[in-house]
Each structure stands twice: as structure tokens, then as C-alpha cells.
Design a protein around this nucleic acid. Structure first.
Lengths: 175, 175
DNA sequence: ACGGACATGTAATAAGTTACATGATTAT
DNA sequence: ATAATCATGTAACTTATTACATGTCCGT
């Protein structure tokens, strides 16, 4: 007990500030609001919820229809969250397999690499479009913080796309 | 055996194309060349090396001074790598705790958030400077692929810094 | 009636982190 | 001589991924 809260668990506590939610709800909400820079899976959510219930940070409300089991914040949970939130957030980390592939590009058929680049560029363009749509929808207007993180995604995708566009010049060179 | 190769292990095989290296060497080389978008730890390296030796993908050369135990690629290793390299690289994933903190910014003292933002912006500025220095040093000129990934880092850091610079306008708004 | 979304959870495994133990060699 | 760096590795643990099992309720 009183293990330090990990970021994934903490984010669940954060969402529970909005009111009681089930694991399912949390997966959906998290996917939507932090999915762009913090991945989590269903399994993780249920596991963290179970652990946090054991630790008294959340409490199960009475089970609803379809075995819905909503959890609500306890005072302990609220303060554990506040403590976590105030801590120095760690450095970001990026893991991009495509770049790994590219570092070893000399061992790969150029057309194959080109194909991968095309695919990934397309994915990023779609992601950017989706972010822009969200931004235009005004559904986040109530929360300037959420909007700011969305903005991060937009800046990121734009930069990546620009990088893709300038790549051929970089890669076609002699050497 | 014949478990699918993971990206971390595969990258070690990639580096071994340059010639036999020890775990230590690999940690250093990997840190330098892919550290920006693929983190790995010493433990992981030694574990993957042990597993790959078991699987016959690499072979230990004779131990040198200081218990140095260099590994070299086997034919099996070479072809496992080629196979891995040709595969569809998965989507990138970013995990940025600062953004998590920001999403819940409404529960945090504004000055504390501002402080975190200042710190992180500084970290990104330093990172950018370091990338630019590497780019200016011409030490990567022999490898246009490595240069391209370095470029990714530069585009990324620039975008993030720009985002930081535009943040106050975003966050100071009413609401 | 039935397909699809809702909902919870477990099992098995892989990957990643942190800390430590041990010792050799080099440079000062 | 002693501190720093080189070098290998283990132990203990936490986090993350993938796949599966089970069942409910809603809409058509």
C-alpha cells in the first residue's frame, strides 16, 4: 500500500474527478482525451482499478445494469492524485519503429523503404486531419488545457509531415 | 526458438553489421544513434544478447581483455534481421507525462504548471541545440539515413518549442 | 432472433526499469 | 593508491500487450 502512483493510474483518478465511471467508460474517455500521447489498454485499466480499490483510492458504487461497476474517488484518491499532479513530470519518450527501420536503410530495398514512408506519411496526414476536425468541432472548447494538448498533436503532425516532404531530397543524395 | 524478433533485439543485429561488438559497445552505439526515438537499457541489451545467442542469431567471439565478450552476426542472424527490416514498421508511440499533467491543469496551481512548462521548454531547447551540433559536426555525413533520423529530431524539437511559445496565448484565455 | 456494442475480467507473456554485485584496467 | 570508466551480468519488479472467456442488453 501507498506505493507511488504511476501515471496511468493517476490519469484514471484524474478522469474520476468528473464523476463515477466504470472501467469501460475510462478506457473510452482516456482513449479520446489522452490517447494521442499516452496509450493504455483495457487490461491495464482493470488492473489499475483493482489495485487502486485495494489501496482505498477509489470505491465501487453499486453495480448497475450489465454488471456496470462504477468507481468513485475517495478522499485518499483525491489527495494521491493531487500529490502526483504536483510532481515533476518525467521526460517524454518517443518510440518510432519507422525511424529504426530507416537508420538501417542501407540494408533495405529503396522501393520498400519508399513504400513504408508513403504509408506512414499518409497515416500522419490522416491523424492531422482528425485532430483538426476535433479542434474545429468546438467539443473541447470548455477545456483550454485539453485544447492545448490537442494543439501539441497538431504541431507534431505538421512537423512530421514537413519532415516527410523534405525527405526525398535528403535521401536521394549521392553517398 | 524462432520467436519473432522484437525491434530492440533487431536493432542490435543491425549494429552488429558493422562488426563484432560487446554489450557495452552496443549500449553506447544505440544510445547515440537511436536514443532519440528508441530507448533501451543495459539490462535489456544483455538479456536480448543472451536470448539471441541461444537462438543462434549471434555468436560470441573469444573473450578479450576486461572480460570483453564481442558478438558477431551469424548467417541466421543476418537473415532474421533482413526479414525484420522488411516488415511493416508499427505506428509510433509517444508518451509525454507533461501533457498528462496539462490535461488535468485545472486541478493544478497555475504557477506550478508554468514552472513545469518552463523547465520542459528548456529541456527541448537544449535537445535541439545538441541535435544541431551533431548535424553541424559532419560526423554523420557518411550515413544519409542516420542524418535523416537526426533531421526528424530537429523538426520535432522545433515544433515542440514553437508549441511552447504559443502556449501562454492558449492558456491565458478566459474559460 | 440475432448481431453488435457494452462490460468485466483473467491468463500468459513480453518488455522495460531500477538497483545492485562484481571485478578489471586506465589515468592521475 | 585511488577514482573513474569499462564491462558483464543478475534480481526483483512494474508495465504493457495480446488473446481469450463470459455474459448482458439494445436495436432492428
Amino acid at each position: 500500500m501507498d506505493r507511488p502512483l504511476n501515471a496511468t493510474a493517476a490519469s484514471l483518478l484524474g478522469f474520476l474527478h468528473r464523476g463515477p465511471m466504470t472501467g469501460w467508460d475510462l478506457v473510452v474517455v482516456a482513449q479520446e482525451s489522452i490517447g494521442g500521447f499516452w496509450s493504455l489498454t483495457q487490461s491495464q485499466v482493470y488492473r489499475e482499478l483493482a489495485a487502486m480499490e485495494r489501496d482505498g483510492l477509489i470505491r465501487a458504487e453499486k453495480t448497475g445494469p450489465r454488471e456496470r461497476k462504477p468507481f468513485s474517488l475517495t478522499e485518499a484518491g483525491r489527495s494521491a492524485f493531487a500529490e502526483w499532479l504536483d510532481r515533476e513530470p518525467g521526460p517524454e519518450n518517443i518510440r518510432y519503429p519507422l525511424l529504426l527501420t530507416m537508420v538501417f536503410g542501407e540494408y533495405l530495398a529503396p522501393e520498400r523503404l519508399a513504400e513504408m514512408l508513403r504509408d506512414h506519411q499518409q497515416m500522419h496526414e490522416r491523424q492531422l486531419a482528425s485532430y483538426l476536425e476535433t479542434a474545429a468541432s468546438h467539443e473541447l472548447d470548455g477545456n483550454r488545457f485539453a485544447l492545448a494538448t490537442l494543439d501539441f498533436g497538431i504541431y507534431y503532425e505538421r512537423a512530421v509531415i514537413e519532415w516527410f516532404n523534405n525527405l526525398p531530397a535528403r535521401l536521394t543524395r549521392n553517398t
